[in-house]
Each structure stands twice: as C-alpha cells, then as structure tokens.
C-alpha cells in the first residue's frame, strides 16, 4: 500500500510542478544575488543569505531559510491536505477502502508518501541551491574552509554533516505540518479546506510567536523552533532548541496522527 501511494505521488504532475515552484524562489534569489552582488543588510533577511555572497557552498542553507517559513509549509499542507479529502472528492477513497488494507494503514501510507514528498522537495531545493551557489556565487570554502556562525572554521566534512542534519531537521518540521494537514484532511470536506486550515494554524502560530502576551504558550507553538537549524552552525552546536524542536514535532506528529486515526477509523465514507 505504501508503494502504491508513493507511486501515485511520484506520477502526479502536481507533485513535480509544486517542487518546481518551491525551487523557483531560491533560484531567482541566487541569480539576483549573483547579478547585483547586493546582500541583505546584517540582521535582516533569511539566515546565511549575507554569508553566501562570499561562500556559495552555504547557499543550500540560505535556500532552506528562504523556503522554510512559507513556501515549503504551504506545499506540504496542500499535498497532505489532499491525502484523504482529495481521494474522497475524486471518489477514489471508497475504492481504496474496499480494496482493504485497513484504514489505519492507509493513513500511515499517506503520511509516508507526504514524507517522501517533503524529502524530495528539500533535496531538490538543496541540490539546485548547491549547484547554483557553486556556479553563480563562487566557492570560497573549498579553499579556505567555511566559517561557523561563531567565527571558527568548519572542515568540509563538518559542513556537509551539519548541512545534512539541518535538512533532516527541516524535514522533521515539515512532517509536523503534514500530520496536522492529514488530520484536517480526514475531517474536512474538501482538500482545499484542509490545506487552508493547516495554513491558518501555522500563520496563527507565527503571529503568536511575535506577541509578548503569548509567552506562556510559546514553547508549544508548532513553528517555535523551526529556524533552530541555524544552531547547528554555531560552534559548538547548540542542541537546546534543536532537541526541543524535534521533541515538539514528534509530539505533534504523534498527536495529530492519533487524532486522524480516531477520526477516520470508523468514519462514514459517503462521498
């Protein structure tokens, strides 16, 4: 069943056009940076963007910082929102359920396919960003070594390992989005409703983060630790927020997957 869902996801034209769209923004930014050579003012703009002008190998991280706050979650919310509600709207849900693999397994298969989408999207962004960074912005670190956020030097192995960890962390954060969208997908009538509901939750969370009055709930907001991947590039790595962020996402995934199961396992399918 998981294989079927994966093949459905990979064969869907929407998957690839979405990934292409996500990829377009960092590509545009890279071209503009290379042409104008104007970085953002320090303290403004996404993480690492000011650093990439001298070192293109950091561009995958800058690209991650560009797509992580908005583009990627939207894409994930749409894809995961499709999962159940989309099948229901298309009428195929009932045919999935009468070829029984079990409803819980269907949910898991859907989550795995969304996860695969996330991995694919993040990797495509990272690889194109790396190629663009090297070709358009130059690759100083290959000769002198990259500079960590704390000013010490990072060897190429360290840089690669930490970039890999950052990508994995971003994927985990997106899995949290996917779980929420999947739950809403079992509850909403239309896939668009599920996607919009998920986006509403994340916009609300982002808004609350900026509010001092929401101090008490801040550590529980789903977007609270999203940008903590920057901490991987401090020296030594600051694990505090990363660990909390990972645990928080795991809890979100667990809770919303359980809620999706509770809602869907005996839901009347009458579309």
């Amino acid at each position: 069943m998981i294989r079927v869902e994966l093949s459905k996801m990979l064969r869907s034209r929407r998957t690839w056009s979405t990934i292409l769209l996500i990829d377009a923004l960092p590509t545009l930014v890279a071209v503009l940076l290379a042409v104008t050579d104007l970085g953002p003012r320090p303290g403004q703009g996404p993480a690492f963007l000011s650093a990439v002008l001298t070192d293109g190998t950091l561009y995958p991280l800058a690209a991650l910082g560009i797509v992580l706050p908005l583009f990627l979650p939207i894409a994930v919310a749409i894809t995961a929102g499709e999962a159940i509600a989309g099948e229901a709207q298309q009428g195929t849900l009932r045919y999935l359920l009468v070829r029984p693999g079990g409803r819980t397994r269907l949910l898991v298969a859907k989550l795995v396919s969304v996860l695969a989408f996330v991995v694919l999207a993040v990797l495509v962004v990272a690889v194109t960003a790396y190629v663009l960074g090297i070709t358009l912005l130059g690759s100083q670190s290959l000769t002198t070594g990259a500079t960590s956020v704390s000013g010490s030097s990072l060897s190429t192995t360290e840089l690669v390992a930490r970039t890999g960890l950052a990508l994995a962390y971003a994927m985990l954060c997106m899995l949290g989005v996917a779980a929420i969208a999947l739950f809403l997908s079992t509850a909403a009538e239309s896939p668009l409703g599920a996607a919009l509901g998920t986006m509403a939750i994340f916009i609300a969370s982002t808004l609350l983060l900026t509010l001092e009055a929401s101090d008490a709930v801040r550590p529980y907001l789903p977007t609270r630790y999203w940008l903590a991947f920057v901490d991987l590039f401090r020296d030594p790595i600051l694990w505090r927020d990363l660990v909390r962020g990972s645990l928080l996402q795991v809890v979100y995934v667990g809770v919303f997957l359980a809620a999706a199961w509770a809602n869907f396992a005996t839901k009347d399918v009458s579309d």
Binding site: G43, A47, T147, V149, V230
Partner: peptide, 22 residues
C-alpha cells in the same frame, strides 16, 4: 545568539574581541 547569526565577545587578559557573524 541572534536568530540568524551571533555576536560574540572573547576575552583574553586585557583584550576583548567582538566577532559579528553577519
């Protein structure tokens, strides 16, 4: 620690170095 960088003070006897990542 800043959201996208950091400003560090490193002190060695009578000298202090301020490092600004951005």
């Amino acid at each position: 620690l800043l959201a996208s960088g950091e400003v560090d003070l490193v002190h060695d006897r009578q000298f202090t170095t301020e490092y600004d990542y951005q």
